[in-house]
């Protein structure tokens, strides 16, 4: 296995909900290598969303350690985690999560401005990515004026704009019809082929076949973590 991008060591995540203590992750170990395409599956409440939030540095572990690209992020401050999110992680959401008042280009540029990238450079990079996503004739459109598939393409472009080491996708095809969903999955396959490390949460077994690795969750624990024979080597 190549150098791991993601390495979780006995990761525990607990929530306090009123008087109730909920354990979402019960001490899991997980390694995902550079360039790997992993799918996380499990029923709702199994801890897979918690895992994705932790991998995306949106949340802190209760105990255990998380190394992202070899660097421990378990004890970083909020500002440092923000910095990591902006430079190293690309998010793709089920509901696209574009900012409604911004047009396509501006949406793609958002992460760049939190890194202080100059406007002209940001514009160039956003334009190149939009072109790659086949959105060149939609640059000035607002998200509301786009189809679901187009909105997800904008979101993918936005997640790529900082050239992240880890891409996290949360049911990226959940809101799309099967044909459009298929196109988006093709696009993700393409990114994988280019060497991107991808972690995707999904319910769909068909999607799982595309990945190299399938991690199944149940009650905050990993019940199976196997390489997918059907996937590309």
């Amino acid at each position: 296995m190549s150098e791991p991008i993601v390495e979780l060591r006995r990761a525990v995540k607990e929530y306090v909900l009123g008087a109730l203590r909920v354990t979402a992750l019960r001490g899991i170990d997980l390694r995902i290598g550079a360039g790997e395409y992993a799918v996380v599956m499990g029923a709702s409440g199994s801890g897979k969303s918690t895992l994705l939030n932790l991998l995306g540095c949106l949340d802190h572990l209760s105990s255990g350690d998380y190394l992202l690209g070899g660097q421990s992020v378990a004890n970083l401050s909020d500002a440092e985690l923000s910095e990591i999110r902006s430079r190293r992680i690309g998010f793709i959401f089920q509901s696209y999560n574009l900012i409604p008042q911004l047009n396509v280009l501006e949406n793609i540029e958002v992460p760049l401005f939190y890194q202080g990238v100059h406007e002209a450079e940001a514009r160039d990079r956003a334009q190149a990515l939009a072109a790659r996503m086949g959105l060149s004739d939609r640059l000035r459109h607002k998200p509301m004026e786009l189809s679901g598939g187009q909105q997800q393409r904008v979101a993918i472009a936005r997640s790529l704009v900082c050239d992240p080491i880890l891409m996290l996708a949360d049911e990226p095809t959940g809101n799309l019809d099967s044909k459009t969903g298929h196109e988006i999955l093709e696009l993700i396959d393409e990114l994988h082929a280019e060497g991107k490390t991808i972690v995707m949460v999904t319910h769909d077994d068909d999607i799982a076949h595309r990945a190299q690795r399938v991690v199944r969750f149940l009650d905050g624990q990993i019940v199976s973590n196997e390489r997918n024979g059907a996937a590309r080597p």
Binding site: A79, E83, R85, N97, Y114
Partner: peptide, 11 residues
Amino acid sequence: IRRALGARRRD
């Protein structure tokens, strides 16, 4: 969304 994309609290 902005926080997920890297905005700090200060931003």
